[in-house]
């Protein structure tokens, strides 16, 4: 088995118009910048993007949005140090937003990957984000029913990958990446280094390869925060 893909362009080739794509990361930490830029080069339209945020500056997710490729964002916090790209489009009515509490977003993705269509959470009970949702009482407390979240594609970032798709992560860059890997029809990971099968200690594997369809090696990956400090713009 060899899930290695040579080029980022090849990794995103199947993402067509109207696709729902999960993109890993929390802010810039764990964001697969090179895969996102390859997606910009490919140019599909009317994408629905699931991410914790909605981009920062003019690179990565913000650049994808700035290109007019995103019809809808599903996220918890569409603000950042430089949120102008998303903010302007949103206030002009040119991009749809589904705002989801962060823990609910994580659990909806986990449920999507685990084959659990719905679950109950105390989060958002009694708030406007629970409007129209089923509520049930368990042991005297109220809980809101939330549904799973799945995607056609997940683009994620990991540290080490092997040809079977086993992945490790680097520090807090883990965040949503292992969850999204489980919840998409096709998951592609950019990894800093591809190692031979057996070189990742099975005790250290965070995402087992069954959840991963392709890996692309991107040595020395770009960091969104560093790019923004340089004033970078993509493309």
């Amino acid at each position: 088995m060899n899930k290695t893909i040579a080029f980022a362009s090849e990794a995103v080739a199947g993402i067509g118009d109207g696709t729902t794509v999960m993109i890993g990361g929390f802010g810039g930490s764990g964001a697969p910048i090179e895969l996102i830029h390859a997606l910009i080069d490919a140019g599909p339209k009317n994408l629905t993007i699931i991410n914790n945020n909605a981009g920062n500056g003019h690179v990565g997710l913000a650049a994808l949005i700035e290109q007019g490729m995103v019809a809808k964002m599903i996220c918890s916090f569409p603000r950042s140090a430089d949120p102008k790209v998303f903010t302007d489009l949103y206030l002009a009515g040119k991009i749809e937003l589904e705002i989801v509490p962060q823990g609910t977003l994580a659990e909806r993705i986990r449920a999507g990957g685990a084959g659990i269509p719905a679950f109950y959470t105390p989060t958002s009970y009694g708030t406007e984000l629970a409007e129209g949702k089923l509520v049930a009482e368990f042991e005297g407390r109220h809980y809101v029913q939330e549904r799973w979240l799945k995607a056609d594609f997940a683009l994620i970032k990991a540290e080490l990958g092997d040809p079977l798709g086993n992945l490790t992560y680097r520090m807090a860059a883990r965040n949503f990446n292992p969850l999204m890997a489980t919840a998409a029809t096709r998951t592609v990971a950019q990894v800093t280094r591809i190692v031979a099968a057996g070189e990742i200690d099975p005790e250290q594997v965070v995402t087992p390869g069954i959840f991963v369809d392709g890996i692309v090696e991107v040595p020395d990956p770009e960091q969104e925060e560093s790019l923004n400090r340089e004033g970078a713009v993509y493309p």
């Binding site: 930490s29 680097r170 965070v206 969104e224």
Partner: peptide
């Protein structure tokens, strides 16, 4: 700063001995 090591406010942080990483769920 190491931009893989940030807090919820997206600010760079450091680790104390005994720190742990985990995914969002």
């Amino acid at each position: 700063e190491d931009w893989d090591l940030i807090n919820a406010g997206k600010k760079a942080i450091t680790l104390k001995p005994g720190a742990a990483f985990f995914h969002h769920a």
